[in-house]
Design a protein around this nucleic acid. Structure first.
Lengths: 181, 181
DNA sequence: GTCTATAGGGAGATAGAC
DNA sequence: GTCTATCTCCCTATAGAC
């Protein structure tokens, strides 16, 4: 194998860690596991990222592409939002890992930040009125509930259901919340 | 102090463990912590319950009182269900601990069982039609979303909101899902 | 930049005296 | 039934050679 540069090693560690944290969660993934998957030495993991927790937080980022949602007609927003959530593989892994690791204060903070930016923010941008903030937060709770049921609980019937049907039904629930009463 | 009998010691261990697991979660609560809180020896924890995981599962039970929901008029069911969830302190602690511990397979199984019995079951009992099961599962996801936003994420604005308003607004969302379209 | 070797701590669980 | 003492394992993180 070609000798790796420091940057390449760092990238391999990051990539292996991102995968393992998503699959097994924070507490069940050890620094040794990451090193083995990246085929490097455990000491390098710490040298490059400082600590296991810093590495974890570094892998738990979501870059949501908001563009497709900007042009959606207001009446279709609920469905399109649910559709996007189910289509994005990264959301599943990141949310699962953050939720399960959230008894660590720093991880809970990150979960709050991502919940706010990824769910509450886009929903509130679609709302008006004096109680827009509260309604956006309730809608974000509904959104989180779908991810919770599918990926945290792992409701087999929902996982096996036709995604298109979930989009239609669950999108309608969301739509009710963002449509002015 | 009066010398405790075996049964009393077992009860003290169980009580201390139930409290600590609800407050700190599974992975951040050690057998030694439980023993210290119960003012007994760490060896007794294992002797009485076999292992930390078995003790955890023994403390993670929910005894939901279904009675008050049986007589609720169908049109009010959504609100009354949400009201009951928010009023029950035990639900918060049990769900938080189970969700956060759910990367352990046995804990995830318990979460599935409680989700099924506590949320899906009562909701499905209120539904009819060919797709009653799917609609009940979507409604259960919505229910779980409220707990998720309040207790897992800890959305400060929702936690600080007037519970009565949450009952009205979120209950309406739930009601839409259990009312035949 | 990468490695070997190990420090240093904490965990769950057990053996056996009383 | 309860205790003291300890075993064994695995963890994160570090020191220092190359």
């Amino acid at each position: 194998m070609v000798r790796r540069t420091g940057a390449a090693t760092r990238e391999e560690i990051h990539s292996a860690a991102a995968r393992l944290f998503r699959e097994r969660g924070y507490s069940r993934t050890s620094v040794r596991d990451i090193a083995a998957a990246a085929e490097i030495n455990p000491a390098l993991v710490i040298r490059h990222f400082g600590s296991k927790e810093l590495l974890f937080l570094d892998t738990m980022r979501l870059t949501i592409d908001d563009e497709p949602l900007l042009d959606v007609p207001p009446a279709e927003f609920g469905e399109r939002f649910v559709e996007r959530l189910l289509a994005d593989d990264d959301i599943r892994g990141v949310y699962l890992a953050l939720v399960r690791g959230s008894d660590e204060p720093q991880i809970k903070e990150r979960l709050q930040a991502i919940h706010e930016r990824t769910f509450v923010g886009p929903l509130r941008a679609r709302l008006a009125g004096p109680d827009a903030d509260l309604r956006a937060r309730l809608a974000a709770a509904v959104v989180g509930g779908l991810l919770y049921a599918l990926w945290v609980v792992g409701d087999d019937q929902l996982v096996a259901a036709d995604p298109a049907e979930l989009v239609v039904r669950y999108g309608a629930v969301l739509q009710q919340l963002i449509t002015p009463a």
